[in-house]
Design a protein around this nucleic acid. Sequence first.
DNA 1: CTGAAAGCGCTTACAG
DNA 2: CTGAAAGCGCTTACAG
Lengths: 331, 331
Amino acid sequence: MITSKDVARLAGVSQPTVSRALNDHPKVSAATKQKVREAARALGYAPSAVGRALSTGRTTRVGLVVTDLDNQFYSYVIAPMHDELGRLGHELVLVTEADETGPIAERLISLGLAGVVLATTTVDSILPARLQDRGMPFVYFNRVAGVEADAVVVDPSAGVEALARAVADAGHKRAAAIFGPHNTSTGEERERAMRAALEEVGISLSQRDVVHGPFDFESGRRGAHELLGRDGAPSLLICANDLVALGALNAAAELDIDVPGRVSIIGFDDLPPSRWALVQLSTVAYDLEAMSREAARLIVSRVQGDRGAPARRVAFGTTWVPRATVGPSPR
Amino acid sequence: MITSKDVARLAGVSQPTVSRALNDHPKVSAATKQKVREAARALGYAPSAVGRALSTGRTTRVGLVVTDLDNQFYSYVIAPMHDELGRLGHELVLVTEADETGPIAERLISLGLAGVVLATTTVDSILPARLQDRGMPFVYFNRVAGVEADAVVVDPSAGVEALARAVADAGHKRAAAIFGPHNTSTGEERERAMRAALEEVGISLSQRDVVHGPFDFESGRRGAHELLGRDGAPSLLICANDLVALGALNAAAELDIDVPGRVSIIGFDDLPPSRWALVQLSTVAYDLEAMSREAARLIVSRVQGDRGAPARRVAFGTTWVPRATVGPSPR
DNA sequence: CTGAAAGCGCTTACAG
DNA sequence: CTGAAAGCGCTTACAG
């Protein structure tokens, strides 16, 4: 490995001068900087992030902590977050959190992460408290938990209220729903917003027409088979997110149930596949890409700046995007 | 930060003994190990990967290098690769390679990566040679380039030949194709295999019915608009991969062209959305998850083991998976 | 079986 | 403006 010592030798200066020159320290003469840069280039020198990290006590790595990396939702988060982190001189490390909330905090510290983005926190997770105790900066992404911290979240209300008015106008009277898990803030908040909005417009949501499940395709598929398979099913199926709705849409295809002829289906997130001509899912949209970038900016600013600053919360608004999966109520 | 020194103090031993005890060194007495472990637990000590890396000259971070992180293909690669790396005690760092092949090798070294997986290498890239010069272990994923190195690849022949026979049996005489980029081994190899297989079964592929583009949705959408929009278009459209085929399928929907009534569409990869009831894309399948895991195993074994060992190439076979997007030729 | 010493590659006061 | 020194948190020969 080529180190700053090698560069120093070639440039005829001391090793600390190499460090200062390459970091563009103001008190290094232009001539020396020039000499050092040339030597570095000649040797193909690449400063070691490991050496720097040990010396400064800080790295430029940010962890994205998720439980289920194969949930497709995150694939739409990773690219913009990675991109924004790169722009800010940081790297993205993926970390999956096993079910046991055991040594994960220690692991994050061990890895030498500068900070982490928590994307799948459950409300009962002890991880946020652990991180706070250990002084590891973090930001909540999409979901929040008990401990006060920076957060990027979605405010469902505007989109959900518009949605409710639209389906009421389309004549729907009874809805079914596949909601998210009870132990996630997102699941709970959307469910609450949706129930309130439906009630407001006089659409009923009977307990027997509601199921809960994870935010994934299979949950939607299974839930739809259960809810739509029986006679007298509601004319409207509301889903916890787009992946759930895509699962439900496919279940409808499997059951040969016409959408939106017999049932209207609604998602939440507006992921790219929802916009496909083949899909045209009606959904509640927000700017997921901007949200991912914002999380990157928040964690970097927290890592670099004042750790004691008050927690910031950035909320993204939602809009209702009607497409082909919602139609007039058949009854 | 809690360090081994703190643990040493509490346990009443020297700092190196802490290191040895926690690494389960055989010559440390059971009693000492016990004492040290308790002290470590009491303090919530997490050994610093940064300190270890500097000391051993090695990290446990593996980089996944891609140009286009928002290509959905990679989202199906990342989860299993990350999982397998985790199983082997390594982490996954995402690295995007900007167009300029400039300082990327230096960057990878700088980051302190133990090794990298190259997933979007073009045949004209200088990166592999650079990495080899610098002694950075790497494995090719899905694509290869000039420099000899470990590789996991797909052998298209079996799947493509079966496909050709199937479409010939279905009466197709003329095909159109949206192939991948010329500067990727994968694009070239699939195109070659496909042309040979079509010729074998007597299906023509006229130059005016062939376009090339990136391995993404938009390429398929655009290509299909171009190829299917005109009169007398072939009855069969072969795509470079599933994302391209999904784009083509959506273009067909946009153009109100019946699939497979008027045109049959074929992909390559068998990504999960291809199996959706709503999609049912006929495609050439291989085990992408196993392939991703294999890449993880190869790079870890290269990093840990003999760097001089001969390059290994693991090829994954393909099968033809007929679904709903292929039908009899209408003509 | 355990400790003292050295070293990994940087950065950063401290002198001069 | 630049060098010598110290130190970040580990691991690993070297003694004993």
